[in-house]
Amino acid sequence: MARFVFRRLMIAIPTLFLIVSISFFLMRVAPGGPFDQEKKLNPVIKANLERLYQLDLPLWQQYLAYLKGLARGDFGPSFSRPEFTVAEILQSGLPVSIQLGALALALALVVGTLLGVIAALNQNRLADYAVIATATAGSTIPTFVIAPLFQLSFALSLKWFPVGGWNDGAFVNQVGPVLTLMLPQLAVVARLMRGSMIEAMRSHHIRTARALGLSDGSVIFRHALRGAVVPVISYAGPAAAALLTGSIIVETVFGIPGIGRYFVDAALNRDYTLVMGTVIVVAVFTIFFNLICDVLYAVVDPRVRYD
């Protein structure tokens, strides 16, 4: 196992390097620059700004300089918000995104698994249909529809929750964003869980367990669930990375100061360093959680061996 983790980490470094390189050059091929705003800047000032941020150097020199900075853990200054460095922006936004994402992920996994199991044990009965309907709705209705509908019904009409804002993470402010983030994930988890649980309940070792006279609870939770949870684990990796790094829609609609909203803003403003910063954060999270997933496989399913 340790060897497997080590090998995966060794692959992760070149992967990350490639992602950084592709993003860096892809972004620079796009027309426009960080100082091309609607209001034309004085060319002298623009030239000075570009010299300050070393944007006047040949691209490959900028690339090497950026890599050098990264190696020291320096993400560079932000062009669109010059009073902050990219590291500062990420540091202030990431905890918020992680907090919301982690809550949504935990809820989606727990509730989704539970719903999936309930549906599987009541296959083709009312409870099953209810879960399938919820799952279909959750995975079909896009976030950018759910979020305003939530605001309209629960915030504007019923006034149970504020329409938006963060308010230092007050509970009522988190309900809307967490529910909106959770629903699509919950739908997928419930669906996956239902399918694999139905299969698991038909398998031989479950029949054996029943024949040995184990109680229903023991059969379901100790034996069936363990094998059935594998597809959910493989889904949870990418889902965790996506949730914890924030959602553009949820953060803009609810006015949350996370890092999700920087994706679009930074790309549109050609804030190169901020874009790179968010890309790196997302890539690191993706690689990390995929690794965690692979390790969890081996823990849950003893047939999986990496050595």
Binding site: S23, L26, V279
Partner: peptide, 14 residues
């Protein structure tokens, strides 16, 4: 593993 949204946005901007 490229952030998908970033990729699309870059393509659209490009």
């Amino acid at each position: 593993s490229l952030p998908f949204i970033f990729f699309v946005i870059m393509l659209v901007v490009f």
